[in-house]
Nucleic acid binder design. Structure first.
Lengths: 194, 194
DNA sequence: CGGATCGTTGATCAACTTCAACGGTCGTGG
DNA sequence: CCACGACCGTTGAAGTTGATCAACGATCCG
């Protein structure tokens, strides 16, 4: 399973075979059950997670007590509450598996130690975060320019298999509307196709 | 003016004095007039901008022909259309000065060359992008959890001087609503205070 | 001084939420 | 293996939020 991470790193930079076990020694593996939290809100987020199997979601609980999902992480995606991870403040987000999953993680301290010992890993994380920044810009553009209905269409088109894979109420939350409204949208779309 | 960039880099890592001029030789300076574009939509975004003075905004034009502003960049902030910058595709965003400004910039090619020659700069950009990722998470949380009115209040509270500094229609656009509605919100708030 | 730009106002309208209720399905315990 | 409860998706009515459009005043700047 750790192999998955090495493969991912190798996509972005060369890494000497003899360094592989040393690099990997900074990380730990975990199996996560469905609905299990890897990170609880209000606790400091100590780990940075790399998903090797399954799917995680990140959510916060709003004033009405509703879980608002804002991120999903699939295989080969990094995820964490970066604000808490960086500053050591309590996290605002909970991170939960929505399927039986497998993750690799590294603590903030170990990540820093890894970067000290293997400065070339700065490049790996620089690229990861640069891509994340680009993805955030793209997502924000969609959020600003599309109606909820168009958002649903765009997302369904880009991730058709994923839409099948997750419960509708999570998708509705992620897209920023209610499950009832998603239900209405789906009905409308079926009618149009007939 | 280039001094501002060096100061910023030094906040995150040590840099030998003799390296300073070499590092700086990768960058270029520019003065930008109010309303001048440093980046046009549909052209490939070749530069990564660091603002040393003034303020830039990033926007796209939606289907109704309205300029939708999604980012501001103040002093010591990096900004660009990262998707275009990374992939070489045409940009979706325009980047424009909203005040007379001064920027330092570096092309994608030169940034790569800089990182090859000074690998410690990977750390600098890793930190910049990691913070940017954290900021994006924070912003997304606010967008999902607050009403438009609360967004305006929160933003006014966090950046009171900035709200004074920019035209209201830009602020309304950034917060995701119309200038007319912002006007209504402001009226409502004044009435409450009386 | 004159035109363009910006903020405001009010009426109407569309998008989306809220709430309550119902039916289907899935998983768990007996 | 069945029965029960919890969870999930759906439906429809009523209510909010915020958009749209058109018009007007103020201000800025050349």
């Amino acid at each position: 399973m750790l192999e998955k991470l090495i493969e991912h790193i190798k996509k972005f930079l060369p890494i000497a075979e003899e360094d592989v076990p040393v690099v990997l020694s900074f990380f730990q593996e975990a199996t996560v059950k469905k609905k299990e939290n890897v990170q609880e809100a209000d606790k400091v987020c100590k780990q940075h997670y790399f998903v090797t199997k399954g799917c995680l979601r990140m959510f916060f609980v709003n004033e009405k007590g509703i879980e608002q999902t804002t991120y999903f992480a699939l295989e080969n995606w990094w995820i964490t509450d970066y604000l808490s991870f960086q500053t050591g403040q309590p996290a605002e987000y909970t991170i939960q598996a929505i399927e039986p999953s497998e993750v690799i993680s590294i603590s903030a301290e170990k990540q820093e130690a890894l970067l000290q010992q293997f400065p070339q890993m700065e490049r790996y994380f620089r690229i990861i975060f640069q891509r994340s920044t680009a993805a955030a810009q793209r997502r924000l553009k969609l959020l600003y320019q599309l109606t909820r209905e168009e958002l649903y269409l765009a997302f369904s088109k880009q991730y058709p298999e994923f839409v099948q894979r997750i419960p509708q109420y999570l998708l509705a939350s992620f897209l920023g509307f209610t499950p009832e409204y998603l239900s209405e949208l789906r009905k409308k779309m079926v009618l149009k196709q007939v």
